[in-house]
Amino acid sequence: MADQQTKSGSDTTKNDTTTARTWQDLKQSDVPEGLWMRCPKCEAMCYKKQVAENLEVCPECDHHYRVGADERIEQMLDPGSFEELWADLGPTDALGFVDRIPYSDRIEKEQRKTGHKDALLCGKGFIKGRGVVLAVMDTRFMMASMGSVVGEKITRCIELATETDRPFILVNASGGARMQESSLSLAQMAKTSAALARFDDMGGLFISILTDPTTGGVTASYAMLGDVILAEPKALIGFAGPRVIANTVRQELPEGFQRSEFLLEKGFVDRVVHRKDLRSEVARLIDYAGK
């Protein structure tokens, strides 16, 4: 607590002419609620509109917030170039899965919340004039867990990219395979990886972008199979979740464990890229490696 106060205190002195303020400042001001947000990392108060203009990155500490798929697509593609595909493909409760609530209820709730059928949006579009097939996972929908719909849409994207000779760009984020579809989810790992093998055989370019968090069955399949793998700063990336690991090994996890920079150091990520540079980095890679 004392630590937090020191932090926000120093922020105020540093930024008194900018938009960042402390929580206390906000309460004193008459700014309508909902226009401001507090950065969960540095605790600075930020003007939401400015954060959005900054691609959902904290203007103060550069913390990359999680981004919904719609907004991400806007950030990534040339304006107006997105042509969504297979938007109607929805999940089904093939197993009659009931935990504390039935999966079918969960699906309905998440669909109402997000306005989307499942946890991935995809389609065709352009990045700085270069044609791509783009898929984006959305953590707002069941933590972007991968079930049959995510697996099927990604496979269709890869097949489309193979047929049309376009690079395939995938923005990953996921808590892992979707338990509610059990072995059907597990099978999506093999299905998508097999499609990527065929794409690879045809000389296709697959750029996998890892964002916070990319874990579990998604990491252990397509996310880690990029010809080039980019990661946003400080994203959590791993096979097992940190809590599971801590419980298994019963020791403290090293500083920065399973973060983008850690994976870069260990050799599993090509580049850590700031969100503002993603478009130009992808375009540059396409110029080197795309058809």
Binding site: A190, D200, A220, M224, L225, F239, A240, I245, V249
Partner: peptide, 22 residues
Amino acid sequence: PGIGAEERGQAEAIAVNLREMS
């Protein structure tokens, strides 16, 4: 699910096997 396993790319190792076995 261990520290060394993550450091040495557990996810990548499995993913590559899926792709190559196919």
